[in-house]
Every structure is written in structure tokens, then in C-alpha cells.
Design a protein around this nucleic acid. Sequence first.
DNA 1: CTGAAAGCGCTAACAT
DNA 2: ATGTTAGCGCTTTCAG
Lengths: 351, 351
Amino acid sequence: MAGKADGGSSITNVAAMANVSIATVSRVLSGKRSKDDDIARRVREAAKQLGYSVNYAASALRSDVTKTIGLVIPSATDAFAAQLLDTIEPTIDVESQQLLLGIGATQEAQKERIESLIDRHVDGLIVMPAPGADHAETLSRHADALPIVQIGGRQTSPHVSMVGIDEDVAMETVVRHLTEQGIASVAYMAGNELSFESAELFTMFHTHLRTYGLATDEDWNRFGACTVQRGFDCAMRLFNGPIVQPEAVVCADDTIAFGVMVALDALGIRVPEDVLVVGYHDSPIARTTMPQLTSMRAPFERIVSECLQLLASSPAGGAAETTDASGGNVRAPRVMLAPQLIVRDSSVFRR
Amino acid sequence: MAGKADGGSSITNVAAMANVSIATVSRVLSGKRSKDDDIARRVREAAKQLGYSVNYAASALRSDVTKTIGLVIPSATDAFAAQLLDTIEPTIDVESQQLLLGIGATQEAQKERIESLIDRHVDGLIVMPAPGADHAETLSRHADALPIVQIGGRQTSPHVSMVGIDEDVAMETVVRHLTEQGIASVAYMAGNELSFESAELFTMFHTHLRTYGLATDEDWNRFGACTVQRGFDCAMRLFNGPIVQPEAVVCADDTIAFGVMVALDALGIRVPEDVLVVGYHDSPIARTTMPQLTSMRAPFERIVSECLQLLASSPAGGAAETTDASGGNVRAPRVMLAPQLIVRDSSVFRR
DNA sequence: CTGAAAGCGCTAACAT
DNA sequence: ATGTTAGCGCTTTCAG
């Protein structure tokens, strides 16, 4: 009874062994105590010896702090979500916080996860919306009860803080890089034409193309699937026949870029000597192509640290502040982070 | 105060509104009550109207059931782990159970997650060991406190149940499939030679090769990295020059198979007309190659259902039973599941 | 700074 | 079958 799952002891045992009250033990172990005197040492020693660890249920019941943060993602096989998971999990100290995971591929499924996590009284909630999902209503309804951060996605309530990728800067970075390599014409293989993100990226790309004075052609710019096959087919169309060919190809996903490189290889066109290729999303594949693929990577470390900081700084229900602090309508913070271009061989002319 | 995070009410409010005692509310809402009479309806109605949901902390404190299960994986970017996550999360009913996730790429990191999860009193723990990690000691030390299931990995304590992939059957399936296609010689591109799994697969492959009477060659069987580049290089070596060439290539990973197909394409060798190719792990890439790649897939649905069943059937501390039930040393169950071969175009001769 | 004591909301005995 | 009641282990007043 006394010794089962945990070290087998409650705060009472520790208190007895250290000859102090349970209140003191609680204070010492939770750091709510100034001095580091003999008493503190005695308590820690006893706790260690008994293999004591707090009962989070009891702690949560009393203090309303569950030491858990909820994370909702669309799918673990999504490369972005997976990298997010791998970055966020080691960042939160496992001793003081744990990750409660919810996966939902649709708006409905995600909503269910979100509400369920909130029912669990998570201390904070991070939501990466599924493509096309709009959680503005759901999230803002809870924003005064706990800090919430949304990662990416379009729709947001003004009461929910958000961390996003600045795709505009991303595209400018790509175009500038190509300009610096001295090329003058570029093709762009966009993603799915039904996706808002694809359309947005497409527009931004062309804006920056004009800014930097690079040439392109309507035939060189098509929407399509993010598959190897599609990249292969498009590259075949562009490079097998036409007299005028682009000097560089930018792809909305590494998979497409891969198909492009396979096609170029089959046509005897060398990368990067004859054509430069740039991918997107920096998937693991980028490091295994020949030559290795230059690609755009989201700054996961910064995304995660911004998220955690926003959760921490939200005064236990961020939105509550938005109305009473200044009296006006203070929007929750929105942080846009620039991705970084991982420059590899596929986009650098060899000297 | 009454209404913050949750619907704003405790069991007391519900009881008052339904004109019953809190005990009855608890019983009705937790299903521990036979009839579905007027009282039950009144309680549910009140709960719904108040937006009531149980306080899991209080519930856990009292009953020692946290309604959480812990899952420890090496990395979310690992394809197997990611698919496991995507399969397991929707399987556990979010209303009654939540997933506490731990990620650790090393034995040490995983051990820390495991102990921390156990400190949290998860109701069950699923561990997918990092490559080479041995948690036998850690897990068996806790096996009498809560049900634990290990997925894959080599080392296990006899007190910890485990679900694994039967690679032997997998290899036999591959070889049989090729035999049925009428081919007589096969090359094998193994994974990392330092990995025990790679060596095991390699051995099994050759065993079945002999059983089915297929030919191979020492030069056709090499260990190496699981990258496109490696597959490309190996295929170039095998198919560009030598008079005698294999009729089929089996790869220990889809990535390798991809490289092989690129090389064959560059050499003007057609798949599947001239050479059959089979991959492993059925990564998303397999569906995007040209032609689509035949590959081996782990039966995630069965893995997950077996895991959950093992957790549920373990009598709240599985190993406790292993000593006192029969008096003898009853080993915890070990379930080996056969992967399935996803047959696509790359391994089927066109008629 | 420390100790005593009051609950947090719920479940499981125990009565009825 | 329902109600009454005693805590689960902890944090946090409130005194000293």
C-alpha cells in the first residue's frame, strides 16, 4: 500500500523522516522557500532516500496546475508536425511539464481533441490546425481560461496568440539567393492549386521575381501535386524540347524537386552546373539526393521557444488581459518567423 | 470562481440540479449503475446543461486511475513511430483516455521519460525502444506497478509483454512473392551493418532464398546506409558492366530502393520489365515512385490493438500475476505480428 | 520561517 | 438503488 507505483511514499513520510511538517516539505520541494539551510537539505535527503515524487493528481486538485501542456496536430506523419514534436518534447523539462498529445486530421477531430484537453485542465495549449481548419471560435471561447497558442493556419481569433512562418520572407530569400548565383530566369513548380497556402506562395514568389528582375514564363509556372512523378513530368516538359529553358527551378516541396532532379539526370542535364534546383520544407530526403538539395526550413527551435514563451507569459488566460488592461481591444501577440534557407550543392555554381 | 476553465461546475452543482446525491451523479456518469431510468436521465440532463465534466485530478487522486496512457518513442520523424502515433491516437477514445507522449532518442533519454511517466501514474505504458536501447531493467522494475508493453526491440524482461514484427515471415513473404513472379536470382541491399536488425534481416533473407532455391551472389549482397545515394551507387555497380545481373533487387529500405530505381532508369533498364524491385517499410515515398514501389508494411492497426489489449488485460500490474497465479514463472505474453507485402507495379511482370 | 489545519472534487465504503 | 461520509495527497491560508 505504501510502496507501489512510485517510490512508495507520500509527503507525510518525507516530513516524518526529516522531522518537519508536510508544509515545509512542500515548500522546500517546490522551491517556495528562500533559504537553503540544514532543514532544506534534510528534506531533500529524505525525499531522495524514499524515492519520493509528488502526486501530480493531488497537486493539481489543490492548486489547479496540472503540469501538462496540450498539443494538437493534424498528423504525426506530417513532416512539419513531426519535427515540431521532436523539437518541443526535449525543450519542455520532463520533470516539470509533460506533453498531452492530440491528433486530428479534420476540423471536427481537432476540435474534439482541443475540448478534451481543456477538460483535462492542461496548463497551456498549442494547436497546429489541420489544413483548412478554422478554430477561431473554439479557441477564443477558451482563451480566457488558459493560455493558447496557434501555430500557422489562416483563421485566428484576435484573442489567441499565434506563431507563424513568414512565407513572404522565405520566398524573398530564395529569389535573392538565386540572384546572387547570377541566374536570370526561374521556373516555379507550385503545390496543390486548391490550397490557399500554395496560391499565396505562388503570388509571393512572383512578386519577388519582379523585385529582383528575374525572368520567368507562364509555361514554367504550374500548380500540381507534391509528388516525385509530378516533378519528373514537369521537368521533362520544360527541359526536353523547348529551346528556351529556365536556369533554375524552385519547387514548393522537396518531393517535386526530387522528381525534377531525376528527370534532369535522365536528360543528361547537370545540377548545379546547368540548372539550379531549390526545394521546400527541408525534408530528410533533401540530404540524400545527388547533389544534395538546397531547401527552405522552418525555424523549429524558434517556433517552439516562442510558443512556450507565449504560453508562459499569458497571465493564466491571456485574453483576459486584452480587455481590462488598457481598456481597449488589445490583440494577442502574433509572431511571424522567417524560415532559413539551407544551402546545399543543388543551388550553388561550382567555381 | 465557479465558472472558469471547464463548464464551471462541480459534481455538487449537478447533484443539486438533478435533486440527487453526488454519489449518484458519480455513479451515473461513470456508468457504474444498472438502470437507465428517470434519475439517470435527470443527472445527464443536468450535467449537460451545466457543461459539467469530471475533474480528472480529483478522480485520479481518489481512485488511482489517471485515464492517461504513456507512450515513449525515439523520434516523431521516425516513420514507424509516426505511423504508430497516427494509428494509436484515434484508437483510444479521447473521452476516456489521453496520450502522454515522451520522446527520447537514446537509452538514457528514454529511461528518463519512462520514469517520469510512471511518476505521473499513467494507467499503462507503451515503449518503443530507441535503436540499441535496452530497457529490460527499468521496465521490469516497474512491471508490477502498472501494465507495460514494449514494441519491438531486442532486450526484454520476461515480466514485460511485448509486441513485435515477425521479420522472418516478412522475408519469407518477399522471397515467395518473387518466386511466384518466376525470377531466379536476387540481390539484397541490406541496411547499416552495425545494426542488429540489419544483420538479422540479412540472415533471414538468405535462409529463405535457399528454401525457395533462388540464386544470389556475394557481390550482390552488401550492407550500407539507407539513402538514395547508396541505392544508386550499388545499382550502378551491379547493373553497369557485369555480364551476370540479378533479376530482382530487394532493399532493406524504400529509400535505397528509390536510388536503385533512379539508377536503373538512368541505365535504360526498365522496372518491372527487366528487373523487379522491392522496398521495405512502405514509406510515403513508395507511392510516388515510377513505377510505384512494392514494399513491406508493418500492421499498425494490429500492433496498436494488441498493445491496448495487453494493457487492458494486464491485471493492473501484469507481472504481479506471473509469480503467484500458477506458482511457476509465467512469462509475459509476446505477440509477433507478420507485416504485409504491399504489392505495387515495381515487382509484378506485366503480361 | 515553520506548523496546524482546511479543504480542492471526487470515489468507494458503509449504511440505509 | 441511493445517500452519507471519509478520506486520496497536496497546497495554502492562518497563527505563532
